[in-house]
């Protein structure tokens, strides 16, 4: 049981980092960015490349974030400069990144990293944690990384630049009225969003200690589900939206874990993911209607 809870928290917090990114595009920018299905493994691929070359695992986190941000800028440029619809811009970037991810991983769909250092297993961290805490080590480190990402995002949202980002999804006209390029603001938002998604991919890769090309499939569904659960369950001003998203992600992972626990085979995972997402959508829409009538 304890193992199960720790597992849910580990997975939940990793996907929470990704869900924070999806929150920016889906809730703030109103941009259905499907490219996250490939920026998540992009972070993992960059990490696999760096770890297998004995580079610093913490540096890998930063490099992955930067790579994700670049991918986000790419999606933004396709949308803003080439005037391609938002949904298609994401799909184009997603498809292109698949090849890039394979290249980064040295052409193989699988890169095992069992004997390499990671943020969870290196001399510095191992010295820091006493033996008694070793089974909680991974979840604690993931939590810290997630909290740093969340606090930085919360801070950003309170800055002038953050205000502008919130404004552009709300009402792009006002950004133009403020003499700012709304396209540029969107690109910034996509960069931050995909940076977070790739960071989650990097953490995931280091936690499971291998890279796999298809590990990103369905990321967007998990991200959207987490955002929708979080923001619907915790409506009102009680909780910050970002906190709600983090809890949403953990709740979602708990639902999936329970489904597996009651006997569904692990190979049904994607199906469970999809059905759960559908149920969440139906429930949340139901609520909207009640509010209207």
């Amino acid at each position: 049981m304890e193992q199960l809870i720790i597992g849910v928290l580990e997975q939940g917090f990793i996907y929470a980092i990704m869900a924070l990114g999806v929150y920016i595009t889906y809730k703030i920018l109103d941009f259905p960015d499907l490219s996250v299905d490939s920026t998540f493994p992009l972070g993992a691929a960059v990490t696999a490349l760096m770890l297998s070359n004995e580079m610093n695992p913490f540096l890998a986190l930063l490099a992955s974030t930067a790579a994700g941000a670049l991918a986000g800028i790419g999606t933004g440029l396709i949308h803003v400069k080439c005037k391609v619809r938002d949904l298609l811009s994401g799909i184009i970037m997603m498809t292109a990144l698949y090849t890039l991810n394979l290249r980064l991983a040295g052409g193989s769909a699988n890169v095992p990293l069992f004997n390499n250092q990671s943020v969870f297993d290196n001399d510095f961290i191992n010295g820091l944690f006493p033996e008694a805490l070793s089974s909680y080590k991974t979840v604690i480190i993931i939590f810290i990384i997630m909290m740093i990402a969340k606090v930085l995002l919360d801070f950003y949202m309170k800055t002038k630049s953050g205000y502008l980002l919130r404004a552009v999804g709300d009402n792009p006209t006002i950004v133009t009225s403020l003499a700012k390029d709304s396209g540029f603001v969107k690109i910034v938002g996509l960069a931050i969003s995909n940076g977070l998604v790739a960071l989650a991919g990097s953490v995931m890769c280091q936690q499971q200690r291998f890279f796999e090309i298809s590990m990103g499939t369905g990321t967007i569904v998990i991200g959207l589900a987490s955002v929708i659960i979080g923001t619907n369950v915790f409506k009102g001003n009680l909780l910050k939206a970002t906190t709600a998203v983090v809890i949403g992600s953990v709740l979602y992972k708990a639902c999936v874990a329970i489904a597996i626990e009651v006997g569904l085979p692990a190979s049904d995972l994607k199906f469970i993911t999809a059905v759960l997402f559908l149920i969440i959508l139906i429930i949340s829409m139901d609520r909207k209607k009640k509010v209207k009538s």
Partner: peptide
């Protein structure tokens, strides 16, 4: 956004929207 945030946003027109507090 709140009334205060809207006012702050408009008050900054013509200046840079950087990482200072909104």
């Amino acid at each position: 956004m709140t009334i205060l945030e809207n006012m702050s946003l408009a008050d900054n027109k013509g200046k840079a929207y950087g990482l200072q507090f909104g």
